[in-house]
Nucleic acid binder design. Structure first.
Lengths: 127, 127
DNA sequence: CCGAATCCACAACGATACTG
DNA sequence: CAGTATCGTTGTGGATTCGG
């Protein structure tokens, strides 16, 4: 549960609501079309910007940068700029990022496992 | 991985790309601000519409209905209408829904565990 | 109490062009 | 190659209202 059922001292309560609102913010950052896919795409490797763009079908240059910035800001990915020419920028998951990736993988597994259920559910949804 | 690295026969490939595009669709349905929170809120209980709206802070009437419809369409929740007056509509998770909830719980745990990491990462992001 | 439809503000996104 | 900025379009989500 993200929302907590807690009733403690004023101080504890204030801390928890602050933490809770941050949690919601993180959740919002992750609950978008691309963030989880990017995390999955980086995996345990080191990925170049252009590799990610090629790998994640349908993502635009802009969205990739934007999401990578957000992930970097939250400390989920490390960004390494090689001062060469042409530039070479590499992204890797941090420890929190790798931890999150495990649960993302769980969601991917879930998707594949229940694809059939979902298809039949959809067909029956004309009732 | 949602995107597959598979190279099989033409038929298999066609099936996989179709399955893959469906997977992406499911993913999109889930990767929004509310879907995962709703799944978490229903939990193992049976929840009324108004209970959910009260419980999920900040969600609007419209978004709740809309997301519940999508979840129902994908077979993640069951919708039970009691023909009383006033109406009483209850939602419960289906088996796939409960399975997904496990991984959602994983994400919630992750959020709480790494809240500290994220806060410090954000503070260091002025460099 | 619950759901659907309308209206509208605003954020998200893609395309493009420009910089280092 | 990678990033930023701008612009026009699309879509998302909230408030409201009406209907069962």
């Amino acid at each position: 549960m993200v929302t907590k059922p807690f009733t403690g001292s004023p101080k504890d309560e204030a801390d928890l609501t602050r933490a809770d609102s941050l949690a919601r913010e993180i959740f919002s950052d992750l609950a978008n079309k691309w963030a989880l896919l990017i995390i999955d795409a980086i995996g345990n490797d080191t990925r170049r910007f252009s590799e990610l763009r090629d790998e994640i079908e349908g993502i635009s240059h802009k969205m990739l940068t934007q999401n990578l910035r957000t992930l970097e800001r939250n400390g989920l990915v490390d960004r390494c700029v090689h001062p060469t020419v042409p530039p070479r920028v590499e992204y890797t998951l941090t420890e929190p990022g790798r931890a999150l990736r495990v649960t993302v993988a769980g969601m991917c597994d879930w998707t594949h496992r229940y694809l059939g259920h979902i298809e039949t559910a959809r067909r029956g949804f004309g009732a």
